[in-house]
Design a binder for these strands. Structure first.
Length: 302
DNA sequence: CGAGTTTGACCCGCGC
DNA sequence: GCGCGGGTCAAACTCG
């Protein structure tokens, strides 16, 4: 791991395209700005830690994609929102994880067999359905390391150069079987010191890595790294221990629905997660404290 | 030896 | 229809 991070430090130095989530021209400050509505943390956590997303929230999203959400006005929101959270074991995901399943080329003729070899069995996984995406959301973290400790174990499964960026994007998957959470890590193009971590899906398990980090996170919280850390730790994402890291969750575009439009909709899963790294309720609306961790120029809009 | 990383190739969606 | 770019796979490799 360390070795990877070391490596990345060198070849990953910036990146443009979380344009996926934010308009390309979107200034970071703004990202920070809109990212942290008081209601956001909740929904955010729901997405991450919670198994059963209530369909209704998605419905809401679809019906009122950009109501009063500052984010949604600024973000193009692609399709993820459309995916059906009601089917946690959505075919797309599960099929991907069980790639070998479908194809034992039991009875292919020689030609096909040949093809199978050359194609490495990549083909069969295609389905008729459009690929469905889990809701995504991202953190912006000011950090020197790309892959932040978040309390979960991740396995890297790919790396891609990103267009318009000299920095590659890394793809990680939760190593826990049956947990299909994915995460993308990339560096901000405009500010290489910022790491953008995008989570996709929800953990179906508690953080396998000790709660110690949670404590650390909690310590941070109490010592000033409030809101962002709170959010992060809330779903098992241990905040980077170093004080030099800021974790800034920002709303992912793919979820135009407000993250927790009504902060009151705590669901059990959410609470469950919070048990592992509970920052405390006050954090949910700790908007003011954000100023403690975000440089003032980033907050100027406020 | 097992777990994780690297890396090139492939697949797929989308815009032109 | 085509090309581009993002996302994923899996063999080979590395490391503990």
């Amino acid at each position: 791991m360390e070795r990877k991070e070391g490596l990345k430090m060198e070849d990953v130095l910036g990146n443009s395209s979380f344009s996926d989530y934010i308009p390309t021209s979107f200034p970071l400050q703004s990202v920070f700005d809109f990212s942290y509505g008081e209601t956001m943390p909740l929904g955010f956590m729901e997405l991450l830690g919670v198994q059963d997303l209530s369909p209704s929230s998605f419905d809401m999203a679809e019906q009122a994609p950009s109501l009063n959400n500052p984010c949604s006005t600024k973000i193009e929101s692609p399709a993820e929102v459309l995916n059906q959270p009601t089917t946690p074991n959505s075919p797309s995901v599960s099929s991907a994880s069980s790639e070998a399943v479908n194809d034992e080329p039991v009875k292919v003729d020689d030609q096909e067999e040949d093809q199978q070899k050359t194609k490495k069995q990549l083909k069969p996984k295609k389905t008729n359905q459009k690929r469905q995406r889990e809701p995504r959301f991202a953190f912006m973290t000011k950090s020197e390391v790309d892959h932040l400790e978040d309390g979960y174990r991740w396995r890297k499964y790919g790396q891609k150069a990103v267009k318009n960026s000299s920095f590659p994007r890394s793809y990680y998957r939760c190593t826990t079987t049956s947990c299909n959470v994915k995460k993308r890590v990339e560096r901000s193009f405009s500010d290489p010191s910022i790491v953008i971590t995008t989570y996709e899906g929800q953990h179906t398990h508690p953080s396998p890595i000790m709660p110690r980090s949670c404590l650390a996170a909690g310590a941070h919280l109490s010592s000033g790294i409030s809101a962002a850390g709170a959010v992060a730790s809330g779903f098992g994402m241990a905040v980077q221990r170093s004080p030099s890291h800021y974790q800034q969750p920002f709303v992912n575009t793919s979820s135009p629905f407000n993250f927790g439009q009504n902060g009151s909709s705590l669901n059990p899963g959410f609470l469950h997660e919070r048990r592992f790294c509970s920052p405390g309720p006050s954090l949910l609306k700790d908007h003011g404290l954000l100023q403690d961790i975000v440089p003032s120029h980033m907050l100027k809009e406020e």
